[in-house]
Design a protein around this nucleic acid. Structure first.
Ligand SMILES: NC(=O)c1ccc[n+]([C@@H]2O[C@H](COP(=O)([O-])OP(=O)(O)OC[C@H]3O[C@@H](n4cnc5c(N)ncnc54)[C@H](O)[C@@H]3O)[C@@H](O)[C@H]2O)c1
Ligand SMILES: NC(=O)c1ccc[n+]([C@@H]2O[C@H](COP(=O)([O-])OP(=O)(O)OC[C@H]3O[C@@H](n4cnc5c(N)ncnc54)[C@H](O)[C@@H]3O)[C@@H](O)[C@H]2O)c1
Lengths: 214, 214
DNA sequence: ATTTTCTTGTGAATTTTTTCTCAAATAAAC
DNA sequence: GTTTATTTGAGAAAAAATTCACAAGAAAAT
């Protein structure tokens, strides 16, 4: 289905945006959409959307556009979202708890099945449905709970240690919220979510426009 | 100082990574670093770093490298981080509270000075030092507190409404955590933080490698 | 039936970004 | 003091991503 060609990371990120907008349209009862209309809603160029989709196949009808329900199904399929992924959170502090309590994730295809922390005072505590488990038991629990994705929400200086546990548990995908680079074997994918990076982007732009006005 | 040339967004994002790594090095007591060493730590190409820095000026010494403290100072300066930005959070739920309680932000140059929500049961409640204020009072409070950046952490279907309040309050920069596109006037910068996009990136890669192994 | 109007999918052109290469600058070694 | 080691900064080259342009397919209008 997917061409052998390397698909740019930005394409995957845009795909997630298209999906979000398409699901909104579907909820509003829309049936069909053209690339130019979708492009406007997503803030991109229409051929960008067509090129992005072309990495995965042909989904439109010439002269008509895209059938929204079908396109949602196709995108979900090639992004691997026609499957529920089991996730674990490592580091149950402010952010870890917020993610655990977040209602939106299961709907998007991600289920949090394990909550891990190294603080003995937290172990055994319940957060929602889940009981906080000692990080040392990650390996054993990863098998049992079939954990496929790990989310790191420890302090930055503990991120590498958390990553080591995760790798040892045989988990091959990590989202790291801690502002620290981690090193893992080649076959483990890491994606960084750095909140301050986004604030810095705004800071840079504000500082620049301020400068201009002087 | 900054050349008139358009600076790519990815450059700013990488800049934030360089800064993070440089601050770690500084804390470890390092004085000087070469672009190739820094590149290795950041997982990029050395000339990438030199090109990125060249957008802003000349900071290195040939045959030597970069003086870490000086480079941190320069990067902070041109990213606008030699100033503390006043921020407001709009939507004090799970995520809003996590950000409010997060200790790392002030150190990075961002201070949360206002917490806003529209839920009458939450208004007046204290979260840390701050009292939750009604979103309707955002305009008045934005002036008083000199709010420069707004962080949206409302449910997605409320993001546009929150954005309208923010724009009306004269705030020119928004980080939107809600998975919904918002429309704002041209002079307002919006940056989206979409957590599920990162999970989707992992999903795509896992689905692909799984497929390969079969 | 034929023409007109849309809109996709894709090769070509363009633009942007990344990487390569090397002269110039600096420090250390001899 | 001269040679050798490094390492930056920047122009050139290469690679990648985006946008353009249009043939081809589909529906609506005449
Ligand atoms: N809270 C936010 O809004 C926010 C925003 C952006 C980034 N972050 C980052 O996310 C991370 C977590 O932030 P937080 O505010 O939740 O911090 P926190 O201190 O509240 O929570 C950290 C948790 O990690 C646990 N922990 C420490 N070492 C561990 C280990 N080796 N294994 C498992 N658990 C471990 C601690 O016991 C604690 O419960 C930090 O790196 C922070 O910089 C947080
Ligand atoms: N919790 C997470 O870990 C997480 C992760 C990723 C994305 N998000 C996104 O962040 C947003 C917040 O998530 P949450 O879990 O904190 O939700 P939540 O429901 O706990 O909190 C939302 C808050 O926004 C307030 N609100 C609603 N409309 C408002 C308005 N017009 N003005 C001001 N406040 C308003 C509500 O009263 C509530 O307090 C959601 O869009 C969610 O999809 C959350």
């Amino acid at each position: 289905m997917i061409k052998k060609e390397k698909i740019p990371k930005v394409t995957i990120h845009r795909m997630a945006v298209y999906l979000q907008v398409l699901e909104d349209l579907d909820r509003e009862g829309e049936d069909v959409i053209s690339s130019s209309k979708l492009a406007e809603l997503c803030g991109v160029n229409p051929s960008q959307i067509r090129k992005d989709l072309a990495y995965f196949g042909e989904f439109g009808v010439r002269g008509v556009g895209y059938f929204i329900k079908d396109l949602i199904g196709s995108i979900k399929h090639f992004l691997g979202l026609d499957h529920v992924w089991n996730c674990a959170i490592v580091g149950i502090g402010n952010l870890g708890r917020a993610i655990l309590r977040h209602k939106g994730l299961p709907y998007k295809g991600f289920r949090i099945v394990g909550a891990f922390d190294c603080d003995p005072f937290k172990i055994g505590e319940k957060v929602g449905e889940l009981e906080i488990i000692c990080t040392r038991r990650l390996k054993e629990k990863a098998k049992e709970l079939k954990i496929e994705i790990a989310i790191i929400t420890t302090p930055p200086e503990r991120a590498q240690r958390a990553a080591n546990h995760i790798v040892e548990a045989g988990i091959k995908a990590i989202v790291n919220f801690a502002p620290a680079r981690i090193s893992v074997p080649e076959d483990v994918i890491v994606d960084y979510v750095d909140f301050s990076t986004h604030l810095i982007y705004l800071s840079f732009n504000l500082a620049r426009t301020k400068g201009k006005n002087i």
